[in-house]
């Protein structure tokens, strides 16, 4: 082992130790727990694949897989589109841009639980500001388009939409990353397009998006990984998994309920394992789809390649 390598290992050691102690060890323990019956009261008992067999027939898990994937399918692209849109809108130094940027960041700074409680109030079907707003200009309890206002907490579709809606305001981090990436793009690329007479749409499609592609791809993957967990607090606080039976029961909520409400830690670990498998699958699929697109982009600008 040469000197550089030794230094590298030395510098990485604290991180690796933390990773092993705080992530790998508990993760291994959890995966082991998935094959046991564990209630944390009595000693746990090895039951082989029983938890997984039950999981395969559990209607709550079936619903949760569907809900989690649908959340992922809506929330991830919408969040990204919104964050990219706002970042491109606010990357110039104009009057009010600073305030607007702060406004985009702010919801992410609210503690998750408080954020959930706030939405519980916002989405109140009768007194909530969201529906009050939708009812403006309508009459007889209908919106101005003549439709009934969404029943956020009692209609399954509306409730799921509500959870996605909640996720659309916590894009601060994604926004900042896109904003920074956009600011780092060379002005010459835009000047080339300008000289060729490119319209705004062409600039977006042929310059901005391809150049941001590696960053966007990483953000998509990151958001995918996060989204299978991000739905947890809103589902717990705002809808508590309902409307019944399982309209907003996400995998993360099943894990929570099984472990902490029913003390079925082994079964919860099995659901966690399923969540892990689903996440890995989602990431692999996206990676295959995005790899080619994201390969270039910043690579030629002297920045490090994000994709090997």
């Amino acid at each position: 082992m040469n000197r550089d390598r030794r230094q590298l290992v030395l510098m990485l050691a604290p991180y690796l130790a933390g990773l092993a102690l705080l992530v790998l060890l508990p993760a291994t323990a959890t995966m082991t727990m998935a094959f046991t019956h564990t209630d944390l009261i009595a000693t746990s008992e090895f039951i082989g694949l029983d938890n997984f067999a039950e999981l395969a027939r559990d209607p709550a898990v079936h619903a949760a897989v569907g809900n989690s994937l649908s959340y992922l399918a809506y929330s991830v692209p919408l969040r990204l589109v919104l964050a990219v849109g706002l970042a491109l809108l606010l990357h110039r130094r104009t009057r009010g841009a600073g305030t607007a940027r702060a406004a985009v960041l702010l919801p992410g700074a609210v503690p998750e639980l408080a954020y959930g409680l706030m939405w519980l109030w916002l989405l109140n079907p009768l007194q909530g500001p969201v529906n009050q707003l939708l009812l403006l200009g309508g009459e007889n309890g209908r919106t101005m388009f003549g439709t009934l206002p969404p029943q956020w907490l009692t209609d399954p579709e509306d409730a799921r939409a509500g959870i996605v809606l909640m996720s659309l305001f916590t894009i601060g981090e994604t926004f900042v990353i896109v904003l920074t990436a956009r600011l780092a793009l060379p002005p010459e690329a835009y000047e080339i397009a300008e000289l060729e007479g490119a319209r705004a749409g062409q600039v977006l499609r042929r310059v901005t998006l391809p150049l941001l592609a590696p960053v966007l791809a990483v953000l998509v993957l990151r958001d995918t990984v996060a989204s299978l967990q991000a739905s947890f607090i809103p589902a717990l606080v705002v809808t508590n998994g309902g409307p019944p039976p399982y309209a907003t029961t996400y995998l993360s909520l099943v894990i929570y309920q099984e472990a902490f409400e029913y003390l079925r830690y082994g079964y919860a670990a099995a659901v966690a394992a399923l969540t892990l498998i689903l996440t890995v699958m989602a990431v692999l699929i996206q990676w295959r789809l995005l790899r080619r697109w994201a390969y270039h982009g910043l690579a030629g600008m002297g920045t490090h390649r994000l994709w090997g």
């Binding site: 010459e188 690329a189 080339i192 000289l195 007479g197 391809p210 270039h296 910043l298 030629g300």
Partner: peptide
């Protein structure tokens, strides 16, 4: 606008679109 002037430009660097 620049696009209507029919001029071409080569810059010091970044004269190409990397993607």
């Amino acid at each position: 606008r620049p696009g209507q002037r029919n001029v071409s430009m080569v810059f010091q660097s970044y004269s190409l679109l990397p993607h």
